[in-house]
Design a protein around this nucleic acid. Sequence first.
RNA 1: UGGGGCGUAGCCAAGCGGUAAGGCACCGGGUUUUGAUCCCGGCAUGCGCAGGUUCGAAUCCUGCCGCCCCAGCCA
Length: 575
Amino acid sequence: MASDTAPVQHFIRQIVREDVESGRQPSVRTRFPPEPNGHLHIGHAKAICLDFGIAAEFDGRCNLRLDDTNPGKELPEYVQGIQDDVHWLGFEWAELRHASDYFEVFYRAAEKLIRDGKAYVDDLNADEVRAYRGTLTEPGKDSPFRGRSVEENLDLFQRMRAGEFADGAKTLRAKIDMASGNMNLRDPAIYRIRKQTHQNTGDAWPIYPMYDFAHCLSDALEGITHSFCTLEFEDHRPLYDWFVDHVDLAGHPELWQPLVEAGIPTAPSKPRQIEFARGNLTYTVMSKRKLTQLVTEGLVDGWDDPRMPTLSGARRRGFPAAAMRAFWERMGVSKQNSNIDFGVLEACVRDELDAHAPRRMAVLDPLKLVLTNLPEGHQETVEFPNHPKDESLGKRDLPFSREVWIEREDFAEVPPKGFKRLIPEGEVRLRGIGIIRCDEVVKNDAGEVTELRCTLDPETRPGGNATDRKVKGTIHWVSAMHAVAAEVRLYDRLFEVENPGDERDGKTLKDYLNPEAKRVVQGYIEPAAADAEPEAHWQFERTGYFVADRHDHRPQRPVFNRTVGLRDTWARKGR
RNA sequence: UGGGGCGUAGCCAAGCGGUAAGGCACCGGGUUUUGAUCCCGGCAUGCGCAGGUUCGAAUCCUGCCGCCCCAGCCA
């Protein structure tokens, strides 16, 4: 996948480039390793773009690996969702793997550590382990089972695998250093007993490897050269290296013989873990717990609700994948915790859509306008370019008639200062038609404006001799006779505050929800917008960028979602 | 006197001993049949603070200060 903007310099790019140029790592292999226990969100897109992007940039390969070492939390539906999201973002993996593909290798590797005196079976229960671990400032104590013989450990571990012991009764632990300042090195668990059906391996295993053990060895087995992960794993790096070095897959082919037999090409590497900061966004939340809460409490309409920061939500909202990629490229990669202004993402979305979205006209809050100097029943078609700057997007015919819908807010009886639209006795340009003058304002008994009666200046019509006469404003319209009624869902930011995850002061997510984040209106669109394919992006002139809803849109019953409004210096001034 | 990270503008972020890129936001101005787009200009005598080394320091050294992560048989 080619990059969408000039690459931004960052430390990971630099490290990889140096590794390639020096010949240390002539070929680059990376992986994106999500746990299939939830939906991917915008933050994950940063990792996806990094993992797949760096591989592509250096002519390397990137695997998609599902890190499925904790059965019970992981579901096949999530692995499908993850694949869909990665594809949507525009990436293709070299190989799809599961950590569970390597369970037999992990088991053999654990046995090797036991034989080497580097691992032991511990009978301490979870509470006892915690008590023995010490605290951040005090060293831990050795488990009384730490000194078991290799033979006993091997026997016990084999019986763990055979399913002889109950869940939690025993663990296999690495024998490292109970006094280490790094808690991860205080004899971390390698295997735990969990008699739980696994989504891939069924009931073949009563024991499952821990992340620290499985992840680094999976990387090595896949020949990964650069293993990118987030900052909180920085402390795990010594352990990552410890397992890779002590298991020494490259020097012990017998450990991964099962993969060879299964026809899985394997050439173990010495991968290097490099940590970077996650990217947070203002006005949203990214934590699985909070996202789940939004869905389960019905605060949104599901995981792909267009207000959700999930990738499926962003997609349904109409954020183009190219904009998502450009956004993360623009943001760079560093080791600083950040809270990125949501406006930057919106700016990327507008950049992309301004360049590529064809224009259409739609009226979301209709007010009838009659051109009294046109004959009753008058109708004609007017040719419009689909894009003001890109002729390759072609032209279309737009029906025009004596009665049109205009946007209610484009008329004001009492105009605020600086108002450039239609006022009584005033003139404005009807986009693509000509200059009209408002002669009469019709109201109902309640005093509400129900209709505007105007005259069109024929000299200002295309081909006339006053086409370039200047008026302050231009407004959009849809021919009433030809308009197609449409449901338009106006989305906005889900939360009203920059940090909705902030639960200090006893506030919760619900206190910060933006009640205006979803408004559904019935509007009128020009016929050429109604035939939209689901997921087609449009700019409705002067109102914003919209996408035909992926699931609900039908040409007979159009449904559009507002992706993001146009930049609006007028509305901003008013606030 | 636990360990590991990070401090450059409102938000991101480059910078790698030679005198503070870029983007978003914001403020001016120009073009415009979208109050959009586009274009031009402005926006850190300053790089957490204090010392030191150097002809020269955001970059090197020392000491402080602030923020983040770690005590799952989660990932």
